[in-house]
């Protein structure tokens, strides 16, 4: 059996006393597309950053398993880690304006990734960069390669970032809110682009977003996070059709705008209880202790309602 692209088990990320990720597990098989959804502060970005060992220097990361392509991310030497980044798993970010170096022509930024992973130099690397730009749908790439990030529109910048991410021909693409900073019409273009690229090269995908609606048609499976914990993980169709966790239900309801979840109004839970309980309409006495992941069909959810 081949190793999972990404295998995270019982991940915890802390910044001093602040717990960003309390308990997250996630597995991405070869060619699989997984969405991580949750509101801001739910720990979804911290989870994927820790998986790439790109968490901020002050953060402490513990896990019972944290591996990329079967390599333990926590103990891999820096040099190996750097070649894994971009070569095996590449990551793109929310704001393509701040994520591109403003002082460097975009062609060079893509070419340096080509150089790092394919060993091409100078003119060859530049030619490869132009090809990549064409593949992500940037017209007139040979000219545009000499332009700087501020000369591109938001959508085009995101295409540049995707081109750089693809330069090392990764088996896994991690996209952290890649369309959040973009116009709705441009969002659809980027989604279409990533879907096409994934089909072309059987690439695994982790798509981090707060927008549940965007997931449909992109990912196979969804992981719902809340307060640093995985609440529910389910095949995308099952999640939309029959959400199991009250938080997922609330999230879907907020999407339809017919039942926006109130702010935390219930009594606080003791430490170790279910984090969602104060906002939960289905709260019961057992919620004072955290529920394990319980299975119902293809879905797993951390909720006592499934135990009934």
């Amino acid at each position: 059996m081949t190793a999972a692209l990404l295998d995270i088990e019982r991940l915890q990320v802390r910044f001093g006393q602040t717990v960003a990720v309390a308990d997250a597990s996630l597995r991405v098989a070869k060619g699989e597309a997984v969405g991580i959804v949750g509101e801001s502060g739910s720990g979804k970005s911290a989870t994927v950053l820790a998986a790439m060992r790109l968490h901020p220097p002050g953060a402490s990361v513990t896990a019972s398993r944290l591996s990329l392509d079967g390599h333990d991310v926590r103990t891999l030497p820096d040099r190996r880690m750097a070649s894994l980044r971009g070569g095996f798993a590449a990551m793109i970010f929310q704001d393509p304006l701040t994520a591109l170096n403003p002082l460097m022509a975009v062609g060079r930024q893509i070419a340096e990734v080509v150089a790092a992973h394919r060993g091409l130099r100078g003119g060859q690397a530049r030619a490869a960069a132009i090809l990549l730009m064409e593949r992500v749908g940037i017209g007139d790439a040979a000219v545009r390669a000499h332009h700087f990030p501020h000369q591109f529109s938001g959508g085009m910048r995101q295409r540049v970032m995707i081109a750089a991410a693809l330069a090392g021909d990764p088996a896994l693409l991690i996209a952290d809110e890649p369309t959040t900073a973009l116009d709705v019409t441009v969002q659809a273009d980027i989604v279409r682009l990533i879907r096409r690229l994934r089909a072309e090269r059987d690439m695994g995908l982790v798509w981090v977003t707060h927008d549940l609606a965007l997931m449909a048609g992109i990912v196979d499976r969804v992981v719902v996070m809340y307060a640093g914990r995985v609440m529910e993980t389910a095949p995308v169709d099952a999640l939309y059709a029959a959400p199991r966790h009250p938080y997922t239900v609330a999230l879907l309801a907020s999407l339809r705008r017919d039942g926006v979840q109130a702010e935390a109004s219930g009594a606080p839970v003791p430490p170790g209880g279910c984090a969602f309980a104060p906002r939960c309409p289905a709260r019961m006495a057992r919620c004072d202790t955290a529920p394990p992941m319980l299975r119902a069909g293809g879905t797993e959810a951390a909720c006592w309602t499934l135990a009934a």
């Binding site: 790109l54 980044r85 590449a90 990551m91 970010f93 930024q109 992973h117």
Partner: peptide, 11 residues
């Protein structure tokens, strides 16, 4: 971000 992003693609 751009330093993080460059690291994320293996620079």
């Amino acid at each position: 971000d751009f330093i993080l992003a460059a690291q994320a693609v293996g620079v």
